[in-house]
């Protein structure tokens, strides 16, 4: 058996099914999308080469840049609001003595629910008349807010819902990292007279930085491909103010039957994601040292 596995063609044979699937569902669509992104194509008739027209249109379309900006908002909200909340709750739960399992399950539940269910659920919470938030606001004498229909609030409302869905998933990840830190390190710090805040910021957080880095990376990836929650809650509305790149692609590519243009947007999403990932790797991820206890 060992002799067999030393033969290179055996590896090829084992890798072949995966390789075929990878080429079929990733490499081929990517190349085909890149090619058709230079074409005028309604998806039904013969595509015609139109050079950089699709990209030029995207460049000059303010609505596309609004959508890019909304992806940016997703990323910024994830990194600067969601991640600190994740850290705070992870630290809190890790120090709970009783019912730790219950807390872990409770925060994890939203991430196993489907986005459609969450979108509908939160639409009830945001309902203008009988929604939870507006009932609370009117109870304390404030004006109700048109959460999903006011262009000033719609994006923010979606960000909150998205954060609610995924925070629990990341908390469980961070919690696992916190709980894997050897107890002795914490105990030594207590003996040295370090308080809870100092231990959290000087010991726990630095030790779990690799996991936090992964959480940030996953948040960025999630933000770049966000679409489902928006489709369920606002359909990109009102008037396109909650469109992100993916919903823009659906609207202007599929709905408008401009598949060439849609593919050019797909390529741009790919390029932007690649650039962001590279930037993050160079600026942040590489600086996070590997932690060994």
């Amino acid at each position: 058996m060992n002799k067999t596995l030393r033969k290179p063609w055996t590896y090829v044979l084992f890798l072949l099914p995966l390789l075929v699937l990878y080429i079929m569902f990733f490499i081929y669509p990517m190349i085909s999308a890149a090619i058709t992104s230079f074409m005028k194509w309604n998806g039904l008739t013969e595509p015609k080469f139109n050079g950089l027209t699709n990209y030029k249109h995207a460049y000059h379309d303010a609505k596309f840049w609004d959508a890019v900006l909304n992806n940016g908002k997703f990323i910024l909200f994830s990194v600067f609001v969601q991640v600190p909340i994740i850290l705070f709750f992870s630290l809190l739960i890790s120090n709970v003595k009783k019912l730790k399992g219950l807390y872990k399950t409770a925060v994890f539940v939203p991430s196993v629910m489907s986005t459609a269910v969450i979108g509908i659920l939160w639409s009830f919470i945001y309902e203008p008349d009988i929604g939870l938030f507006n009932l609370a606001l009117t109870k304390i004498g404030l004006q109700p807010v048109m959460w999903l229909s006011d262009s000033q609030w719609a994006m923010f409302s979606i960000l909150i819902t998205n954060a609610w869905q995924w925070t629990g998933f990341y908390i469980v990840m961070v919690l696992a990292a916190i709980l894997s830190i050897p107890r002795e390190i914490d105990e030594a710090a207590i003996v040295d007279g370090a308080g809870a805040f100092t231990r959290a910021t000087r010991i726990t957080v630095p030790l779990i930085m690799p996991v936090i880095s992964v959480v940030i990376m996953l948040s960025i990836a999630g933000a770049m491909k966000a679409a489902d929650i928006i489709i369920v809650m606002t359909k990109g509305g009102p008037g396109g103010v909650t469109d992100v790149m993916a919903t823009y692609l659906i609207k202007y590519g599929i709905t408008n039957a401009k598949y060439g243009y849609g593919n050019s947007i797909g390529v741009l999403i790919f390029v932007f994601s690649l650039m962001l990932t590279a930037l993050y790797q160079v600026l942040v991820a590489r600086r996070v040292e590997r932690v060994e206890y």
Binding site: Y126, P128, M146, L148, S149, G237
Partner: peptide, 8 residues
């Protein structure tokens, strides 16, 4: 029209 109807 009802206020907030854009989200309904």
């Amino acid at each position: 029209f009802k206020q907030g109807e854009l989200g309904l």
